[in-house]
């Protein structure tokens, strides 16, 4: 089953294909959700809701409008941000210290939880500070190019090229 095939099958409500996609993306999406809500139980709940939502609105996904991962990433971020805005959540806010994915990875390193994360941490440390910020806002927080430009006080065109360079660095780190 290729990636494209599994997405087509998923849209035809094929549970096997859906499970395949779930296994492929659950960790990444959980990570993104967790960086936003900073609570693993809540993050797990949201992740489950996200996949059920994806299943129920499988028809609305269209490959010409973006990558499947990007689609899932959007659903996840929106669900997580919605959660942080709810009353219940505001009252039970924890782990204020972590605000960036780097901080999250840092905690794992300290707790010695996943070997994978340890490996990544070493390399992510090598990323330039500006890169960590750009990547954090664009991929974890779902900021638009304009919002990033305003937050980091850099020209909008620079966001694009900076990000390009940062992702190139990241690729060298994580894919080799």
């Amino acid at each position: 089953m290729t990636f494209e095939e599994s997405i087509i099958l998923f849209q035809k409500k094929d549970v096997k294909a859906f499970e395949y996609l779930y296994n492929n993306y659950k960790k990444s999406l959980l990570g993104v959700i967790f960086t936003i809500v900073k609570n693993d139980t809540i993050a797990e709940e949201i992740l489950q809701d996200v996949f059920i939502k994806a299943w129920n609105s499988a028809d609305s996904y269209n490959s010409s409008k973006g990558r499947f991962f990007t689609w899932m990433l959007n659903i996840s971020r929106n669900a997580a941000i919605d959660k942080t805005r709810s009353k219940n959540f505001k009252n039970s806010k924890k782990n204020q210290s972590v605000d960036k994915f780097v901080d999250v990875i840092e905690t794992y390193d300290n707790l010695d939880t996943t070997t994978n994360s340890i490996g990544i941490k070493k390399f992510v440390d090598k990323l330039a500070e500006k890169c960590k910020e750009v990547i954090n806002l664009l991929y974890f927080k779902g900021y638009t190019q304009k919002e990033v430009s305003e937050t980091l006080k850099m020209p909008i065109g620079t966001v694009k090229t900076r990000n390009r360079n940062c992702i190139n660095e990241l690729r060298n780190i994580v894919l080799n």
Binding site: S28, L30, T35, D40
Partner: peptide, 23 residues
Amino acid sequence: IEAAILKLTAATAPVSNSSFTSI
């Protein structure tokens, strides 16, 4: 690009005990 982002984001995930079964 996607593969790199997948790897990076996955590294931020807490230890998960959820499975596809419940979904």
